[in-house]
Design a protein around this nucleic acid. Structure first.
Lengths: 124, 124
DNA sequence: GTCAAATTACGAAGATCCTCGTACAATGGG
DNA sequence: CCCATTGTACGAGGATCTTCGTAATTTGAC
């Protein structure tokens, strides 16, 4: 078997720009989370430990729009994106967000879950 | 003569519509807080125990725009507004927000304060 | 090389948002 | 009653946002 030393082969030469941790702005994060589609993405990512490709999200919008929302999330520092083959993997920047805004992400996620229960989605 | 049981005379006949607690939506609150002017208002209100009139806020925008921002905050359930004479008093709906979104307001306020320090506003 | 899968880029339509100025309304004091 | 104070209503301009369809790009498999 091959060594495969690196855990994750970054795969391709395509690169994606991400803001450094210190460049992340609270107002941008709040704006990003104020969109239902993006909130849905973030909530799904928060329930996963690893990465998810864009295609596993079945948002009720076109693929172009989905691409747009993922870019907004990346450019404001909420998610990390990396190409692996033809897929683009996504992960929450939980460490960075928790370091910058302690407790914010968790309270937002909890508020979203509570609201779903209250309004009768999912849990009823 | 009338009993006048209520503590605060509402002063005028002008009334303002507020969403009930259960009608407050997380996405609307996040959107409201994503604007720097409105965040400034909320942070100022959070530092006060009582009410503040609109005029004590010296936002770097016109009076029309100030009115607009206060209305957005009221209509999404973040603040409570009431007329007292010629003034309009504002207060955070802290109880409602804390009940609906535990910890959210506090973490947002803390994040805003931290970011100000980090970016060199105020504290330096 | 060819092909399918995943995603982007581009341009555009429509909606919403932030901002403003000006004219107007409500209140309380003299 | 007159007036100053406080805030609103009513557009309107300009920016940004959400959404889309179609053409193009990148990658991995055969």
């Amino acid at each position: 078997m091959q060594p495969r030393t690196t855990v994750q082969p970054p795969s391709s030469g395509r690169s994606l720009e991400h803001p450094a941790r210190d460049a992340i702005r609270l107002e941008d994060v709040l704006h990003a989370l104020s969109d239902p589609m993006r909130m849905r993405v973030v909530r799904t990512l928060a329930g996963e430990t690893g990465e998810l490709s864009c295609s596993v999200f079945d948002l009720p919008v076109s693929k172009s729009t989905t691409t747009h929302h993922f870019r907004v999330l990346r450019e404001c520092g909420v998610i990390n994106q990396i190409y692996r083959g033809t897929a683009k993997m996504n992960a929450l920047r939980r460490e960075d967000l928790d370091a910058l805004f302690p407790g914010l992400l968790d309270s937002v996620l909890r508020a979203a879950a509570d609201q779903d229960l209250r309004l009768g989605r999912d849990g009823g």
